[in-house]
Computed example of a mutant assay.
Amino acid sequence: MLSTEAALDDYSFEITARDLPALASTADRFPAGTRVNVTYLGTEDAADRLAAARAVADHGLTPVPHISARRLLSEADLTSFLDGLAAQGTHRRVFAVGGDPAQPHGPYSEAAQVIASGHLAAAGVREVGIGGYPEGHPDIDDAALWDALTLKTRLIAEQGMNAAIATQFSFDTDAVLTWIRRVRDAGVDAPIRVGVPGPAGVKRLLGFARRCGVASSATLARKYGFSLGNLLGTAGPDAFIEDLAAGIDHGVHGEVRLHFFTFGGLDATASWLERRPVAA
């Protein structure tokens, strides 16, 4: 069992380039060095993402820029972005994802191909984040997900880098704990950051859940802390985190931390975290 306070130690969170004004007003409310994933949106270009990674670092936080395989136009597009990160010193940690487009925009159709290219290691990347899906993926079958997870962790290790896993969010702690145990049984010992929505409107949460294939039955909603009959309400992750912490056994589940999706905004997440006790 892990205490709720310990579960909140060394958390990470996620932003997009358009969140920079909000980051400027909230950055000092997060512990120095907190990891901040900078997502790879199709509506933002490489310059936007580079600027966001630099801003995260300038605020004393640790940037983890996303690289979306299917959105890369070419090999040169990948190396140019990595060169840009290296030039500003924000290249040590990246997060490799497949990305949303149904058809790749260039030569890479999945994150494993980006990792296998060798360009991340050559650019001086030390840690590669990869995705985890406790409830599966709406467009990828379960067997392929597991094959990809083990392949990516192997490729990362073979190139002398460290792997880190961040999961899709879930309302179901049982599904998350079962999935983590299966990851460990598969011989993958990379640290896992469990995706958790920060405080947000119920309607907004359910919208993201539908898009991401996250189960949201009435039973799971009540367990998480909201009602499907009150879409105008808000929900926080209190019950989920307490339940998750109670189920964690480090001997079984290994290193587990939290990763916040700031669906309700950075200010709401920062305010929620400030009200929670954090392990010393």
Rank of each mutant, 00 (worst) to 15 (best):
D77H: 15
V252F: 12
A175K: 12
L177I: 12
D9C: 14
A24W: 06
L220S: 10
L72I: 05
A24T: 13
L78T: 00
I156A: 01
A87K: 07
T153A: 04
F81G: 12
G254Q: 10
F171A: 01
R184T: 05
T234P: 00
N162Q: 15
E158C: 13
A22D: 05
S271A: 15
Y108V: 02
K152W: 00
G106W: 02
A122L: 12
G131L: 09
E255Q: 12
A164P: 02
T62E: 15
G160Y: 03
R54F: 10
E75N: 12
V128Q: 01
A215M: 07
A17P: 01
R181I: 10
M161T: 02
G129Y: 00
G254I: 04
M1A: 15
Y133A: 11
L23H: 09
S170A: 15
A102T: 09
A17T: 03
V214Q: 03
E110N: 11
R18G: 03
L266R: 01
G198H: 04
A121K: 03
Y11F: 15
I156N: 00
R257G: 08
G265Y: 05
D9V: 10
A239Q: 11
R35A: 08
R276A: 06
L205F: 07
G106Y: 01
H259N: 06
T26H: 00
F95K: 01
L177A: 04
A46S: 12
A280E: 06
R93K: 13
G198C: 11
R193D: 09
T219S: 12
Y108E: 03
A144N: 10
K203E: 15
R154W: 01
A123L: 09
T178S: 15
D139K: 13
A218C: 09
D48P: 10
G131M: 08
P237D: 09
T26Q: 07
D174S: 14
A87N: 09
A17V: 06
A76V: 13
G89V: 10
S68C: 10
S216L: 04
E255S: 10
H66D: 04
L20C: 12
F240H: 14
D77V: 08
E75Q: 14
S109L: 07
G118H: 10
G129H: 00
A268E: 12
D28Y: 07
S74R: 13
V56S: 02
A157E: 08
T269K: 01
G225L: 11
G33R: 13
S170G: 13
T16F: 14
V252L: 14
R18T: 09
P197D: 02
S271Y: 05
